[in-house]
Design a protein around this nucleic acid. Sequence first.
DNA 1: TATCTCCTTACGGTTTCCCGTAATCGATCG
DNA 2: CGATCGATTACGGGAAACCGTAAGGAGATA
Lengths: 221, 221
Amino acid sequence: MFKKVLIAEDHEIANISVQKTLHDLGIHNTKYVYYCDHALTWIKNAIRDGEPYDLLITDIEFEDDDSPQEIKDGLSLIKAVKMVQPDIKVIVLTAKDRSALINEMFRENQIDGLVRKARRDGQHLREALQTVYQHRTYQSPDSKKFIQEQNSHEFTQFDLHIVKLLYEGISQKEMPEYLQQRDIRPSSLSSIEKRLNLMKDVLGFTKNEQLVAHCKELGFI
Amino acid sequence: MFKKVLIAEDHEIANISVQKTLHDLGIHNTKYVYYCDHALTWIKNAIRDGEPYDLLITDIEFEDDDSPQEIKDGLSLIKAVKMVQPDIKVIVLTAKDRSALINEMFRENQIDGLVRKARRDGQHLREALQTVYQHRTYQSPDSKKFIQEQNSHEFTQFDLHIVKLLYEGISQKEMPEYLQQRDIRPSSLSSIEKRLNLMKDVLGFTKNEQLVAHCKELGFI
DNA sequence: TATCTCCTTACGGTTTCCCGTAATCGATCG
DNA sequence: CGATCGATTACGGGAAACCGTAAGGAGATA
């Protein structure tokens, strides 16, 4: 089993449980941190000392507080960590379902396991630890189901831009101007309308309100 | 300190930590359940056996799964529990900030403590346990701050109804019909428009998209 | 260069939404 | 009973969004 594990998770309550789970599995050399920046520092120091971590368990969403951080979310942390230690195993622990981002990370071999914070998450974490230790990838059942449901529409950068503008209160009529300023193409009102229609159609929505709420909920914007 | 505590929390990882926290404080007579219905049953049985619980620690959001439940969320659970045991102390543990609902529960003396799942939530839970045991109420600092920020607009039932309809993809034009069917008043298009304007005005929004996303994010709908 | 195709843009008619004003209703009070 | 005030509803003009169709442009191919 893994020997040396780093846990990056801002919620103290979640952090305690992960530690306890590892402890129960006989992993005693664990370090837990509440900030991404700290996580990266510990990873680097461990390499410097010739005793690198085997595994990083990290959340995705980290809350901002009064101590400003360089790295603000788990995905950025993973990228930074993989730069300095490409062979480290990574298990992601997340409350939200961000299928698009997560799928991409799996494809790029940036992560080895995904556990969604849900009813049986403790069990799933144990399974993930076992599976990833055997050099296989793991996804908790909830997230698998969700990803299957969810692959109905692949959002392009353009899609996300216009949804984000909607969320910021920009009217469709004003959008062409905004998009041109940012050198985003296409930029015409027609294209925006067409694209919004397509998204709503695929997702079974009738109103932009639903689309914006949906994207917000999934963490796309 | 409390002697007998019931924990209702669907996430196994959160549940483990709460148990551990209680254990560290010397509270060993704890029961943890993953469903609201189970929680109510245990409360009732404890009363029947003459050994009622001192304290209920409960989440608010419970995820649906394949085992259908009578009580689907923490607030309903609290109401049901208070019916059978009005003197039980209640600490709520929640990830989202539902200031309106929570404030109401505090006012009605339905809950004694509120801990938001955040960076220092373990610490806050310990503080809540101490404070509530002394018959005082407790709110974790995050939630206090949030409630202050948030009191810009007090959403009425009517407000939430129309926002919810928007979220469901109903056009404003169709809303009067819906509202009349459900005996909600007022129901005219004018009233709906006026109310939407007021909400957007207070919150500094220009579009319904923002309003819906905002309410969704705060768990109002 | 001519042609075909795909993507983008332009345009016009219809619906919905927005917003101000005026009429109606209902309860309270002198 | 009439007056008054607040809340609700009705209405109408103008703006934005919606939707189908047609025109324009860039790239690929022969």
